[in-house]
Amino acid sequence: MIVTAPHSRVARWPAIRPWLGVAVRLGLATVWLVAGGSKVGDLAASGRAVNAYQVMPYDLATVIGAALPFVELALGLLLLLGLATRLSAGVSAALLVVFVAGIVSAWSRGLAIDCGCFGAGGELAAGQTPSYLPEILRDLGFLALAGFLLIWPRTPVSVDGWLAGDASVEDDDE
């Protein structure tokens, strides 16, 4: 198969992939840092945003709402450092799947809420209509980033690579 593929493309992918990986890792890190940072200032509002989905009791929603921004920030930090990249990507993917499921369920139940994705939401501002589809598509885009890192977790300029010593060694770990 390698023989039949055009030479240039074969040569390019291994050269590009590590740097594309860095971009993806930093991109996903930014997403989490911004998402967490925008909620961390008002934890009560974050709890209300979770409660607005009406999928769990209020008290549980406030606990999740308070914990989530900090977990998002921590995930962003891990990805920024490139520490435990595969695990972080896995947790990211799991969270994103839960978020998408939440939005789909709110949509299907006809709730009119703000997803609270960036900045504590829950309640819609005046005259706003829910924008569920763009929110879902955006989360799916982020999911693709997480998927890339699940498959190729090893990227240059990462703590994982530094710990492994030789970055050129392909291992399946992290």
Binding site: L68, F70, L73, A84, S88, V91, A164, D173, E174
Partner: peptide, 27 residues
């Protein structure tokens, strides 16, 4: 390598759990 991966993963999970607990206690 296996051991390193294990410890790195344990540390990362601990970071995430502690972050969540911090959020809860701050709230």
């Amino acid at each position: 390598r296996r051991k390193r991966t294990l410890w790195v993963s344990v540390a990362a999970v601990a970071v995430l759990v502690v972050a969540g607990l911090i959020g809860w206690s701050v709230y």
